[in-house]
């Protein structure tokens, strides 16, 4: 009696879980960044891609470092991230087939409207960062090895401030706070602690819990943020869905895909600027 009942239950459970397995056909997994996901870009372009090709794109959104690691382990078919040097290393190591530039957006420095560092309206990100440190105003760092985190560290180096070294020398002050989380969490933290934070414009525009936060610095050339897309190498991981993954890449760098990216706007503002054909992007 008992065993019969248990078998019945197990059967129900099995049938429940079998349904998603069937729907799995003709789909790819794209490991991407929190910025593309949180900004809502995928929500806009993926339905267009699916309507055209019937391919279901499953986006696992992670930091750039984690997304590349997911690709390296063979758990994604395509990686779509923004850290050019890491992407090139990924391809050079043989984990990716080829890197294609897709689009860029820009970073902005966000801060409280009380502006304790007095940098609001500046177009010089390097000078702004130097001032923040000099005035020991709170600064929130992603600290999660994401593309945004890598970009932030590069900007500090341009300002002749070596965060990693100061940290290892234990002279980094408590004004610099690494939270080890995504963009949204960093913005939430900045909002709660009246700190500055480097953010991508896309996440910022769709971010709702702004509180006292506003843009402090924008428009500097050095704040541009290039995205690339890479097919995970089927030679390393035979399970990679080469054809479907390449179809996604081909579409997103095609005029149609590029237009879809340019068409995505929040409050009338364009978030991402397609540049698949730009040399050296």
């Amino acid at each position: 009696m008992i065993s019969r009942r248990f078998i019945l239950l197990a059967g129900i459970a099995a049938s429940l879980t079998a349904a998603p397995a069937a729907a799995q056909e003709k789909s790819i997994v794209v490991a991407s960044t929190t910025s593309t996901q949180d900004s809502g870009l995928f929500g806009h372009i993926l339905p267009l891609f699916k309507a055209k090709t019937g391919i279901d794109v499953k986006v696992v959104s992670q930091g750039t470092g984690q997304a590349l690691e997911t690709g390296r382990r063979g758990d994604a078919d395509v990686v779509f991230v923004h850290a050019k040097s890491l992407e090139e290393k990924f391809v050079a190591e043989g984990f990716g087939v080829k890197r294609y530039p897709v689009m860029y957006n820009d970073f902005i420095l966000i801060g409280p409207n009380s502006d304790p560092a007095g940098i609001k309206g500046s177009r010089d990100i390097v000078a702004a960062l130097k001032t923040i440190k000099a005035k020991i105003a709170p600064f929130i760092s992603r600290g999660d090895k994401s593309g945004t985190h890598a970009a932030e560290l590069a900007l500090w180096r341009l300002a002749a401030i070596d965060i990693a070294k100061e940290k290892s020398d234990k002279i980094l002050g408590p004004w610099y706070r690494e939270i080890g989380q995504g963009m949204g969490a960093a913005l939430n933290t900045a909002s709660a602690s009246n700190g500055y934070v480097l953010a991508d414009r896309g996440t910022w525009l769709s971010f709702k819990n702004r509180g006292e936060l506003e843009i402090a610095v924008e428009g500097d050339q050095r704040l541009f943020n290039q995205y690339g897309v890479i097919l995970v190498n089927p030679a390393k991981h035979p399970n990679v869905k080469q054809e479907l993954g390449q179809a996604f890449i081909d579409w997103i760098i095609s005029p149609e895909g590029q237009k879809a990216i340019a068409d995505y706007k929040i409050n009338g503002q364009q978030l991402f600027f397609p540049n698949a054909t730009a040399p050296g992007a």
Binding site: T34, Q37, D38, K58, V60, S61, G184, L187, F207, R210
Partner: peptide, 21 residues
Amino acid sequence: GNIDGFTRTMTTAIALETSKG
């Protein structure tokens, strides 16, 4: 992986939406 429409549960969605503000 918190994939939209596929593996997104109540708790992962709460984590995501909170991070999106």
